[in-house]
Design a protein around this nucleic acid. Structure first.
Lengths: 230, 230
DNA sequence: AAAATAATTTAGTCATGGCTAAATTATTAG
DNA sequence: CTAATAATTTAGCCATGACTAAATTATTTT
């Protein structure tokens, strides 16, 4: 009898579509449309394939992306919601794998990348609850809330700090796991206290003290480390 | 540099192939080849599709199934190994979801059904270790070992017991979750003590005492409940 | 502004894994 | 043993999502 009342759940976007939407979200966080080439690079796919998929996403009802030839692509509200769903899955999974299976935060990404596409809403709810509805994942990235909106980011980049200012590291946005491990070595991990002991106005290098050790960090690093806002 | 040394990991069988191999394993546990129709029913796919996939699996090098037209299909050693890998994933996942996320053993199946295809060896090892390398899953089914062999089953069906015999329930093989919940209601769950207080030689019904309650069970149920062997 | 280069799109192909309809082979009933 | 039925296979089609090669459009350089 329950059979007869089953909601005809709308089919979930395919794994490929989810990947496209997630990457488009990330590439458009700067406010600029994402280019075909950039997407192709991020997705490990040829540009021609990107064009094809984008055209398909733009033709869906409702459209998931806004697209004009040669103008790059952005997410529609529907597309953004779908992207945030995937990102929420990913970040909750990373948090959960680190907490319950002893993964380190720099090796958990790939696993989450595969799991994010197949977990149920029920599963998502259970791990969110088990983790106490965390605000950030192990990297410090904000986790989209259950209503599929991204919380306001109140962090500022470490590069904005000057001599004698200090704060707590919230987030480390490292593009590859090599750098991630390096920064972990230096003690530059989320929830660590950091203090700026010197600032060079010429190259914007910061001298920082973390866990009683001192390091000089260039803009390439300090711009990727986020500190709690004042 | 690590790049240059990356093992060219053989591509994992597709999700579809994994599903086929798992079902063939289950359907051939009785020693008989699996028929096209039975497989189609189990996989929610048309018989013609099964024929196509089986032919493909038989043509792989090494072959994953042994197949002769109209004769049904069995697993080759390579196919059996691949099937046991998926079954190990499934059963470890079920065990783990029940233990760590409070799933009940009758609602965990579908989730594991999707996750089993995407977890890494590393993940498998971590949950196996975290669970203390369990012998059976929450249903009581044997979990294939890390070397991908199925442990010897030392259980016997409840239907083999007679008046005044007793034992511990190891496994409940219920074909659908409705029956599963019903049996749970009756207290017929793995690791519970059960005592046969009467036996009817005519219809093979057993009168059993479980958790201070008494029930009369038909062969349709008693043959699906496994008890620790003597 | 024209030429060279880079980015993007189109057109056409392929593999995967479903499907239907029709043909074939097995099995069962009479 | 033959006819009816059931099971299985073949043939041909479709959607998805990749690919290459060629064409087109944008952007830089000179």
């Amino acid at each position: 009898m329950a059979k007869l009342l089953e909601t005809p759940t709308p089919p979930r976007p395919s794994t490929s579509i989810q990947d496209y939407l997630k990457r488009i979200y990330e590439l458009t966080e700067n406010g600029q449309p994402a280019s075909t080439n950039d997407l192709a690079r991020e997705l490990n796919v040829k540009p021609a394939s990107v064009t094809g998929m984008i055209q398909k996403l733009a033709a869906e009802k409702p459209a998931l992306v806004a697209y004009q030839k040669h103008q790059g692509v952005t997410l529609t509200p529907a597309g953004k919601t779908a992207a945030l769903e995937v990102i929420r899955h990913h970040r909750l999974l990373e948090t959960w794998l680190v907490q319950t299976l002893g993964y380190s935060w720099d090796e958990v990404h790939e696993e989450a990348e595969r799991l994010e596409h197949v977990i149920s809403e029920d599963f998502e709810n259970r791990i969110a609850a088990a983790l106490g509805h965390p605000l950030r994942d192990p990297h410090g990235e904000l986790i989209p809330t259950a209503d599929l909106t991204m919380p306001l980011d109140e962090s500022i980049p470490l590069s904005a700090l000057r001599k004698d200012q200090s704060g707590k590291i919230l987030c480390v946005k490292a593009p590859d796991s090599g750098l991630l491990r390096h920064l972990t070595q230096l003690g530059l991990t989320p929830n660590t206290f950091i203090e700026v002991t010197d600032y060079s106005p010429y190259d914007h290098n910061l001298t920082v003290k973390v866990k009683d050790k001192t390091h000089v960090l260039g803009l390439n690093i300090t711009s990727k480390i986020l500190i709690e806002g004042k």
